[in-house]
Simulated assay, not measured.
Amino acid sequence: MKVAILGASSHIAKDLIASLAQSTAYKCTLFVRTPATLDAGVQTIAECEGFPVLDYAAFDDSGEFDAIINFVGVGDPARAVQMGQAIFSVTEQYDNLALAYLRSHPACKYIYLSSGAAYGTNFSAPITGDSVAVFPINALQPQHWYGAAKFQAECRHRALPEAAITDVRVFSYFSHRQSCEARFFLSDILRSLHTGTVLEVAPDDMLRDYLTPADFMQLIDRVLQAPPGNDAVDCYSLAPVGKFELLAAVSDEFGLKFTVAGEQARVNATGPKAHYYSHNRRAEQLFGYVPGDSSLSGVLREIRQALHARN
């Protein structure tokens, strides 16, 4: 299967490219804004596997694809703040690139990396199959723009029922390739483990469902191999994890030192999310996806791998 990867320089795309390279079923073409600046590790994989690395100007002339996977977006909350309203035009630009290809190649599948943020501000309880998107339409703030851009993209996709489009909503994701400089909770943990410094955390708890590379690959593989359809699915592991449960486990296994302090100056680009995870199991119903890891087991394994790579 020939697969075009848009946004191949993103963190989650790098992990998927590494996973796809282990399968003889997939031949990838990687698209980025500036090929020369592609991550060295991904560049090595591309060279070994014969995956072309191209800029977007070459997309229309780069051949026939069986599937497109669109990772273009913002992975780091700090970058989402910097982008501001440009998130709307960037999201639409590359989504339109894929949709235009589908119009001339109707047999092509399109996987769009959406986000749990597409549900808006609806996280006082876990998401279910009956949940609705909630946005304060009369009081929209920059923190809502990322989720609104994803929601808009999903609306465009549902308006094309004949197109083979699957929106994959990622809530939380972590791998050993995560940059310590990114502004995520787990990046802060990694940075403290690397430097031996004490991590300061806010007193409020939060529940997250962290997907890791093996289960993400399983889900994407099942979507690619399934009959074409037009739908959206939420990502999930075997079980979410609370902040302090995770901190205790990382402290026990890796010696993390942390202290509870006041509210931290954390970048909150998409608003507060006490229960940022989903009980919606449509991915199992449609594709037979059953995760192999819980959030805790997956995160601990990836931290273990990150520390081993550094040493």
Rank of each mutant, 00 (worst) to 15 (best):
I5N: 05
L6Y: 12
A8K: 06
S10T: 11
K14N: 10
D15C: 12
I17C: 03
I17R: 02
A18N: 02
S19G: 01
S23F: 03
T24V: 10
K27V: 13
T29S: 13
F31N: 07
V32A: 10
R33T: 12
A36Y: 01
T37P: 01
D39A: 07
A40G: 03
G41C: 05
G41E: 15
V42L: 09
E47V: 13
P52S: 07
A57Q: 13
A58R: 15
D60N: 12
D60A: 13
S62Q: 07
S62N: 09
G63K: 08
I69Q: 03
F71V: 05
G73Y: 00
G73A: 10
G73W: 00
V74C: 12
R79H: 04
R79P: 00
V81S: 05
V81R: 14
V81I: 14
Q85E: 11
I87R: 03
S89V: 13
T91K: 14
T91E: 13
T91A: 15
T91Q: 15
E92S: 10
L102Y: 02
L102V: 06
R103N: 07
K109T: 07
Y110I: 06
Y112L: 09
Y112D: 06
S115M: 07
N122G: 05
S124H: 15
D130C: 09
A133N: 01
V134I: 12
V134R: 10
F135H: 04
I137N: 07
L140T: 04
Q141K: 14
Q143W: 03
W145K: 01
K150F: 02
F151W: 12
E154C: 06
E154A: 06
C155W: 01
R156M: 11
H157K: 01
A159I: 03
L160G: 03
L160Q: 10
P161I: 14
I165W: 06
T166P: 10
T166K: 00
V168G: 06
R169D: 02
V170Q: 06
Y173A: 10
R177F: 04
Q178L: 10
R183A: 11
D188N: 15
S192G: 05
A202L: 02
A202K: 02
P203D: 08
D204N: 14
D205L: 04
L207K: 11
L207V: 15
A214V: 12
V223R: 02
N230G: 07
D231L: 07
D231A: 11
C235H: 11
Y236R: 13
S237P: 13
K243C: 04
L247N: 03
A248R: 08
V250N: 03
S251N: 07
S251M: 02
S251E: 11
F254Q: 05
F254K: 08
T259F: 00
V260W: 00
G262S: 09
A265W: 01
R266M: 01
R266Y: 13
N268T: 09
T270D: 08
T270W: 09
G271H: 06
G271D: 03
A274V: 14
A274K: 12
H275T: 03
N280D: 13
R282P: 01
A283L: 06
E284T: 05
Q285E: 14
F287A: 09
F287R: 08
P291L: 07
P291K: 11
D293W: 13
S295Y: 14
L296Y: 15
L296H: 14
V299R: 11
E302F: 05
L307N: 04
L307P: 02
H308E: 12
R310T: 04
